[in-house]
Structure formats: C-alpha cells, structure tokens
C-alpha cells in the first residue's frame, strides 16, 4: 500500500451538539498513514461522536472532513470506501457463524465470493482465528469476537482503520495482543489507524496522540512530544494536566 505521507483523514472545525449540549467544539486534526493515531479521552469526551461523524452515521452540523481527499458532504460513498471500522459496541450477528458474518460484510463491500473466501481465511489466520471459521459467534468469547470484528474491518484492505475503544471489556493479555496487532498492521501495511481509547497503556511513545476533553482538542502530536510540552514525566501525568485545565473541572 502506498504511503504518501499525506493525511488520509482530515477534520476541519467540526462542531456538534446533542440538543443544547455541546459534544464537539471546533475539532480539527488529521490522521497520517503508516502509523497509529490515538484519540485519548475520558468517557463523554467526544470520541464516539467523532467516529459517528467520520463514518457518516451522523451529519456534521458545522465544519467539514475529508477522507483520502474526498469530502463526506459531497461524495459520501467514495469517502466511506477506504474506511474499515471497529465499533465500540459489538455489531456481529450472534446467530450466524464467523464465516457468514464476514461473507455478509464482504458482499456489502462488493467483493466476489472467491476473493472474499480467500481474504477471510488469510485475515483470520493472521488473527489466529482460522479454526473458528464455522462456529457461531455466540459461542465465541469477548476477545475472539473482537478479533472477528477486526478481521471484518480489514477484509477490504482499508487505507484507514477506525477503532472505537476496541479493547473495552477484554482481559489484559487479549488487550495487549490486539494493540500489538494493530500497531503491526500500520507498520507492515502502511494503513492509518485512528484508535479511540481512555486507556493510556495502549499508547506507545512513537504513536501520534490527540488528547480530547469535553469536546475540545487539548493537545496533539507525537506522544513523547505531548508529554514534553505538558512538562510531565509520564503520559498519565500529561493527560491529567491537560484535562484538568478544562473550566468545568476547575470549578
């Protein structure tokens, strides 16, 4: 996959309200190919709202965003094409098998049955799930279901992988394995990953980091640089310092 270095996802001044409540306030950032960008924020910070906007589930009330240069407002189908999404909430059909779930998605993406079968097998092998192909999703544990969701997001070889808190509810070894797998993907395939999380230990020093708090971007840059600019010895300390500056917390 070509790694041009140009941002593959760019948000410009996105503002979003739920009724009177401000969820996102003039949010701008971009996501580069070939690396993981962590969107770090507490619950309610606005991470899922950003994902819902980028995936076209919500319409942007103000601002605009581009996915590989395509504006979601004018070319929604083309903009969605390079995205692979792992939603925070499980979205697999529990009564269907792993294969049936993945074939469904492959069909939605316009893949032929032959190409889909090959991709499903190779992707599941990469995730250590090939032997579970014909099991019903209901029979899988949480970690395995998550792997299937990641496999599904990768089937069409997306240029951008969006992962909304993909490790929520998983045990520590499974979390580590998934974090490591996605980091590896960005390095080997050159795809971009936008990883929303509230777990600081999922972020590596070389990752790009965006700190969001109550709908506002508080800092962005390489994780090491964010730490340095916050004058903190650790990422956790930097996060505490950055999010403590919000007026709501100050009062």
């Amino acid at each position: 996959m070509a790694n041009t270095g140009q941002p593959v996802l760019t948000l410009h001044g996105i503002t979003h309200h739920y009724g009177a409540k401000l969820a996102l306030d003039d949010v701008s950032f971009d996501v580069a190919p070939g690396r993981l960008t962590a969107l770090l924020g507490l619950n309610g910070a606005g991470k899922t709202t950003i994902f819902s906007l980028v995936t076209g589930l919500f319409s942007a009330q103000a601002g605009r965003f581009e996915i590989t240069g395509r504006d979601m407002r004018t070319s929604p189908s083309q903009a969605l094409e390079p995205l692979g999404v792992v939603f925070q909430q499980p979205t697999l059909d529990l009564d269907l098998t792993v294969r049936q779930n993945l074939m469904y998605f492959a069909g939605l993406r316009g893949m032929s049955r032959t190409a889909a079968s090959e991709r499903i097998l190779s992707t599941l092998m990469g995730l250590g799930m090939a032997e579970r192909l014909d099991e019903r999703v209901r029979a899988l544990n949480g970690g395995h279901r998550r792997r299937v969701e990641i496999a599904r997001a990768l089937l069409h070889e997306p240029r951008i992988l969006l992962l909304d808190e993909p490790t929520v509810g998983l045990d520590i070894p499974t979390r580590r394995a998934i974090v490591s797998y996605v980091h590896e993907l960005t390095r080997t395939r050159g795809c971009a990953a936008l990883w929303a999380t509230h777990l600081i230990d999922e972020i590596e020093p070389g990752d790009r980091l965006i700190v969001i708090d109550r709908g506002q971007i508080k800092a962005s840059g390489e994780a090491k640089a964010v730490m340095a600019s916050a004058g903190a010895a650790s990422l956790a300390e930097a996060f505490d310092k950055l999010t403590a500056q919000s007026p709501e917390l100050a009062t």
Binding site: T55, S77, L80, E81, V85, F87, P90, L108
Partner: peptide, 14 residues
C-alpha cells in the same frame, strides 16, 4: 439498538 445497522449504513453505497 444492537449496532449491526451501523455496519450496513457505513457501506459505501447510498
């Protein structure tokens, strides 16, 4: 409610 509609609606088709 269960979320699977999101998979359908993020498909790059109208």
């Amino acid at each position: 409610e269960m979320g699977s509609m999101r998979v359908l609606l993020t498909t790059p088709l109208p």
